[in-house]
C-alpha cells in the first residue's frame, strides 16, 4: 500500500496520521472541559518567574 511494502513502516506512517487526528479530537472534546482559573498562588509564581527572567 502507498508503495511501502513493510507493514511496520506503514503502521508508523498511518500511526502518525491517526495520532494527529486523535489529538484534534481530544482538543475539540476537551476545549472547555477543564477549569480555567488563575489562583493567587499562580499569579505569585508568575511574578517571581518574571523577576528571574528580568534578572537574566
Amino acid at each position: 500500500m502507498l508503495g511501502i511494502d513493510d507493514p511496520f513502516v506503514l503502521a508508523a506512517y498511518f500511526g502518525i496520521i491517526a495520532l494527529a487526528v486523535l489529538s484534534l479530537i481530544y482538543g475539540l472534546i476537551r476545549r472547555n472541559a477543564a477549569r480555567d482559573e488563575v489562583t493567587p498562588e499562580d499569579r505569585q509564581w508568575a511574578l517571581e518567574e518574571k523577576k528571574v527572567d528580568d534578572e537574566i
Binding site: I16, L19, S23, Y26, G27, R31, N32, A34, D36
Partner: peptide
C-alpha cells in the same frame, strides 16, 4: 509551569501534534 491552566494545555494538544508531525515527519 508557565501555563495558565489545564484548559490551556488541552487546547494546545492538537496544534502541538500537527506542528510536531510536520516538523519531524
Amino acid at each position: 509551569m508557565t501555563v495558565r491552566s489545564r484548559r490551556e494545555l488541552d487546547r494546545a494538544v492538537p496544534i502541538g501534534a500537527i506542528f510536531i508531525m510536520l516538523m519531524t515527519g
